[in-house]
Design a protein around this nucleic acid. Structure first.
Lengths: 126, 126
DNA sequence: CACGTATTGAGAATGGTTTCTCTTTTTGCT
DNA sequence: AGCAAAAAGAGAAACCATTCTCAATACGTG
């Protein structure tokens, strides 16, 4: 049966405390601050495990590898800061929600969507 | 100076005739129908070349490698069919245009955005 | 507290995409 | 047509993210 390990806790905590989805590398860097000997393979193993348990979900952004964030946060989108390269979760209401279920000219039946906003976060605007 | 080759023409033509951005592999498959001995390395070389010339632009979609489409088509978004896995260019007016230049709560200054729609194309709805 | 086993760390291995190398072929100017 | 240089083809090589291997470690149940 699954065990609670320091590593697993640190990895989940890194994701819970982040302002947005993290890459495996970022999770590693972050969680290593608690547990300096943490191996990258352990991060990958636990991300897969936590995903299979439904505790975290993968996030795909354009031109990037898979990121992860805690599950259960509902429909939302992300903001990528072009200054610090960080990704933030947005809780603003979705401006594209009206498109759900619509069929566009050309016969494209919309099921869901991904919206990613780009710009500068508040700390990078100075 | 740059030369006109059969290969380069076939590659550009494949992109011009496609309904949406293509992956290098897809360009290869498509252009090979005109020129059966076409090498994959030639496709990559020409995609880079055509991009540096400003004739094509890279397109990044969530969870996928780089695709390319002809330049100069203006602001638009893409529809990914979950049936045939094809990507289509949409010319519908952009529902997120109002966000350009807006600053969201939290101080996120929006510069641009990427919107990708998912669903079934007309041929896959049967 | 002891044991069985899930888990870890480290580095090697993998898989897929993109780039490079080197020889041969083409292109387009003279 | 003849040449110099750009470009192509084929396969090897480089890259990166992810996964695997295996001996050593650490949960947590009994």
């Amino acid at each position: 049966m699954a065990r609670q390990t320091l590593q697993r806790r640190a990895i989940l905590q890194a994701l819970l405390e982040a302002p947005g989805p993290l890459t495996p590398q970022q999770v590693w860097l972050q969680a290593s601050q608690q547990l300096e000997s943490l191996g990258l393979a352990t991060v990958y193993r636990n991300l897969s495990f936590l995903e299979s348990q439904g505790e975290i979900v993968p996030v795909h952004l354009p031109g990037e590898g898979t990121r992860f964030e805690p599950a259960g946060r509902g429909h939302h989108h992300h903001f990528c800061c072009e200054g610090c390269e960080n990704v933030f979760e947005l809780d603003a209401s979705c401006p594209v929600a009206v498109l759900e279920g619509v069929t566009l000219p050309g016969g494209f039946a919309i099921k869901h969507h991904e919206l990613t906003l780009y710009g500068l976060c508040s700390s990078c605007q100075d």
